[in-house]
Design a protein around this nucleic acid. Structure first.
Length: 275
DNA sequence: AACACGTCCTGAGCGC
DNA sequence: TGCGCTCAGGACGTGT
């Protein structure tokens, strides 16, 4: 479910509910998500105050006093919500944090591909060391045509598989990879190394624009994405290719959108306007 | 029954 | 042969 825009949407929705609050308790209902939960580490946050809620790539970072940080990744099906203490626990709600105002912050995740762990950081506002090697944020200065060209050089994989590689591009997932390539007019199966400098610049711009618009719309709801306040995203109505197999291309109006499987993921594109 | 918006692991293939 | 890197594909729960 959640790519960069969805995580950013959740981050913004959580922030006003969490920042400044003290953690009063934590309850867990499973042994493990993608990896075993460290209950003692989670409990060690109780009594501390939340000082910031941030995002880096697809990671959500909740910073506490004393340089403690809760690192969260939503995997395929993770979600967060804020609700009162006495709200009944939903199926697949695995962690409940109790705040000092009668509210709770809850993590739900049917597939349990997510990640929740406690880290200690060097100083206030710093990233945990495990995230220090991430590539540049797509919406930051360092992400541009020159950067894309540098990671495409010498790579024979299809460009879409490069965009999905989280060690090379941070935060782009399966929906926005298809959307950005369509916006840039570049075929998802093109070998990365064959992209010209001009195409890399166009693609970098397309990625930034796509992500920005998706954030502005509150993310994309295909099946069940909800922000932390329960509201669905609005970007699905602005999708140009994802999930539109057989429908006419909304840009060139000639081609029909095709679906193919690339590195075992659905990929959508317009054969007429993507080269 | 096929497919799902993510990541990790394994093993094949390649150049040196 | 071996090392290091790249890349494809399966596995991981559950829901629709």
């Amino acid at each position: 479910m959640p790519e960069l825009p969805e995580v950013e949407t959740i981050c913004r929705a959580l922030r006003p509910h969490l920042v400044g609050r003290y953690l009063r308790g934590v309850r867990t209902f499973v042994e493990a998500l993608r990896q075993p939960l460290d209950r003692r580490a989670l409990v060690s946050l109780v009594g501390r105050r939340i000082v910031a809620v941030r995002r880096r790539a697809k990671f959500l970072l909740v910073e506490f006093t004393d340089r403690r940080l809760l690192l969260m990744h939503l995997g395929m099906s993770g979600s967060c919500r804020i609700c009162p203490d006495n709200a009944p626990r939903r199926k697949h709600e695995h962690i409940i944090w109790e705040l000092d105002n009668g509210q709770t912050w809850r993590y739900g995740d049917p597939r349990r591909f997510g990640l929740v762990q406690v880290q200690v950081i060097r100083k206030r506002g710093a990233l945990p060391s495990c995230l220090c090697g991430l590539p540049p944020e797509p919406l930051s200065r360092g992400f541009n045509g020159a950067y894309l060209a540098s990671i495409c050089r010498g790579r024979s994989r299809p460009i879409k598989s490069v965009l999905l590689d989280q060690t090379l591009v941070a935060g782009v997932g399966n929906i926005y990879a298809s959307e950005a390539l369509h916006r840039a007019g570049i075929s998802p199966v093109r070998r990365a190394a064959t992209l010209s400098r001009e195409e890399c610049a166009r693609l970098a711009h397309a990625i930034r624009t796509t992500l920005r618009q998706a954030i502005a719309a509150g993310g994309t709801t295909i099946a069940d994405f909800r922000s932390a306040d329960g509201s669905p995203g609005g970007f699905q109505v602005k999708l140009f290719v994802y999930g539109r197999e057989g429908e006419p291309c909304r840009r060139c109006r000639r081609g029909r959108i095709r679906r193919l499987v690339l590195s075992s993921r659905s990929t959508y594109y317009c054969p007429d306007c993507q080269r």
